[in-house]
Design a protein around this nucleic acid. Structure first.
Ligand SMILES: [Mn+2]
Ligand SMILES: [Mn+2]
Ligand SMILES: [Mn+2]
Ligand SMILES: [Mn+2]
Lengths: 217, 217
DNA sequence: TAATATATTTAGGTTCGTCTAATTTAAAAT
DNA sequence: ATTTTAAATTAGACGAACCTAAATATATTA
């Protein structure tokens, strides 16, 4: 139906819209797609023809409703396959992204719904990101950054805002895992480091940078 | 590494070599690939450059050792994913081919080996076709056509030589399933129909055409 | 507001995988 | 051994997705 490339552009535009506002710039898109700006202009023209995006030259691009539905479908595929890789094949959460980048493009409504059922209709992927349901509806998880908590606050670690392998490795090394309960024991004024009590037991101190990449609720 | 198209050509050449002899004709390849002859000539030149095939113009084409290894890898992927779709997701054996055509191109040695392990290292796919192991070695299943049996012979239904949906549907309808034991009760001289006793119970009569598409051992 | 800097598009090219029409090579039949 | 037929290749073109270099449009800042 759509090429892998088109699907990747749609997903990239979708994510940029989520984080940076409705209108997406050519250069931003070029950056995340790892191509040069003229390639993006080219592609946006073609995708505009197909009514996947609304594009006006030099004015940036937005997804059409159609484009958005396709993008959400890809996100659904990606996250369900990530669950499969971790839950069934025994991958670690820092290893699955690249494989899911391939699997997300496998076509077939029935396939992904069967996979969904097989996995027990999970609500979130291994990184805590919400999985759109078969109708394209995203469960709105109301999580906040760890860095927004005050001393004494308690919460559960539900997701990451930095998906890089290096950050995930860091969390593993520090013994901080998805689902852990944590309490902010203290916040150091001087350098904004957070000392946490994990699962009522372990004590860990993390930097502001880390606290800005951890989602809790 | 290789494009989907290249991989599909390699698989097609591999299968044609298996059934029609070492040298594959441009026209045969065009037919199974569903493209026109000049496209094949073109593609073979490029694949020759990459040492995936040995191609001499107007003399047909053969796989190189490298090309053969890639082809066997694709076949391995295809068949393992078919097992997954049937065993884990609950697909029927006549529904899995097209999805496996997509999944077979997912890259990653580790992925397919983990899948293999997850499935319990199956030796055959849902159609009874042997699955190459991680080293590319195909278990040689010594099966024969049902039509080669004599009256009174007994055997197990281990595979099909016709993979068409219509034939698989026919078998389902007739209640003949992979793994069934069967005994040739009688062969009608006049029209070569086979009357079989299935699992020591049911009795079924099949045409020569069907007997030519059933593999037993 | 005019000058400068940055973002975007246009122009022209490349590779991959396909096509049709025309030509050449090989095989089969007379 | 010629002629006829069939198979394969060459020639020229096209769309998708990319590129570099040059031109233009927008934003910033003097
Ligand atoms: Mn991911
Ligand atoms: Mn994820
Ligand atoms: Mn198949
Ligand atoms: Mn099969």
């Amino acid at each position: 139906m759509h090429s892998f490339t088109e699907e990747n552009y749609l997903k990239a535009i979708y994510k940029l819209q989520e984080t940076n506002g409705e209108v997406v710039a050519t250069s931003a898109l070029a950056q995340v797609m790892g191509v040069h700006a003229p390639s993006v202009t080219d592609m946006l023209k073609r995708m505009g023809q197909k009514k996947l995006v609304s594009y006006q030259k030099s004015k940036g691009v937005k997804l059409t409703e159609k484009g958005k539905q396709v993008a959400i479908g890809i996100v659904r595929n990606h996250r369900l396959w990530e669950v499969f890789l971790v839950e069934k094949l025994g991958y670690r959460w820092d290893e699955v992204h690249d494989i899911a980048e391939q699997l997300e493009h496998i076509q077939g409504e029935e396939l992904i719904n069967k996979l969904d059922a097989y996995l027990g209709f999970p609500e979130a992927d291994p990184h805590g990101d919400p999985i759109p349901n078969a109708k394209g509806v995203l469960p709105k998880l109301k999580s906040v950054l760890l860095s927004s908590l005050k001393e004494g606050d308690q919460a559960t670690f539900t997701g990451v805002s930095d998906h890089s392998t290096s950050f995930l490795h860091y969390l593993d090394k520090a013994g901080i895992a998805l689902g852990d309960t944590l309490k902010v024991k203290s916040i150091e004024q001087y350098d904004q480091t957070y000392t946490l009590t994990l699962k009522g037991k372990k004590e860990v101190t993390v930097s502001l940078k880390v606290a800005n990449s951890i989602l809790v609720s």
